[in-house]
Nucleic acid binder design. Structure first.
Length: 225
DNA sequence: GCGACAG
DNA sequence: ATCTTGTCGC
């Protein structure tokens, strides 16, 4: 492709999408509003394999028993990637595939853990928050790296966490899910509080760095069939 | 203008 | 995210 010309596959107007993000973000509920006790946990993630020079998005949705983190169901959905990754606009690229996968599940999770940011986003609407707001379901964003925000390095022990700040607002946590590993960037999505996002993410962590819902979805997205 | 930047 | 060999640790 001619590098001097704009990519026709790119969104027409990013400022319009940004405005939509602000609008949806204003509807995001930052309080715990989900069943207690929690029965089922959902996990979502996407892989982006290239076939014949074209990029596809393989979304994976999994369901686990909250009680013991036992796998209950898992499905996938593959769609053509609409446009390249653009920092701050990831949800417009991956949400369609994630919604398709989530819709194929027979079980309905009480709380979703999504690989990506929650409200710890420039316009407070990361992938997890967008997903939750779109379906009005409880969600938490569990990212493997930082999108934005400042923080102090958390302690070395499992469970050690530091607030993630932006413009004088605590939007999430930098969590050491396992002793000595690279920390996770956790933030509330929809219908989950700041403390709730931290507690439930840590509770969903088994023996690995990533919480089980996200870890299983990640593995499935990279190994469909 | 320059650097940063989920997946 | 993907590309990609060997390598360190439980």
């Amino acid at each position: 492709m001619n590098p001097l010309l704009p990519d026709p596959a790119l969104p027409r107007d990013l400022s319009a999408l940004a405005a939509l993000q602000r609008e949806l973000a204003s509807r995001v509920i930052r309080e715990d509003r989900f069943p207690d006790p929690l029965r089922l946990l959902g996990g979502l993630d996407c892989a982006a394999p290239r076939r014949d020079g074209k990029t596809f998005l393989v979304a994976a949705a999994v369901v686990l028993r909250a009680e013991d983190l036992t796998p209950v169901e898992q499905v996938t959905a593959t769609l053509p990637a609409p446009f390249p990754y653009i920092p701050g606009f990831l949800s417009f690229r991956e949400l369609p595939a994630l919604l398709e996968a989530a819709g194929r599940l027979r079980h309905v999770p009480d709380l979703w853990l999504v690989d990506g940011a929650g409200i710890a986003h420039p316009r407070r609407l990361g992938l997890a928050a967008h997903f939750g707001a779109a379906l009005d379901v409880p969600s938490i964003g569990v990212a493997k790296s930082r999108l934005m925000g400042t923080y102090q390095e958390p302690g070395w022990e499992r469970g050690s966490a530091s607030p993630l700040w932006d413009r004088g607002e605590a939007l999430g946590w930098v969590l050491r899910s396992r002793r000595g590993v690279k920390p996770l960037f956790v933030s509330p999505g929809h219908r989950v509080s700041l403390t709730g996002s931290l507690l439930w993410t840590l509770r969903a962590c088994g023996r690995c760095r990533l919480p089980e819902p996200t870890r299983l979805a990640d593995r499935l997205s990279k190994t469909p069939g």
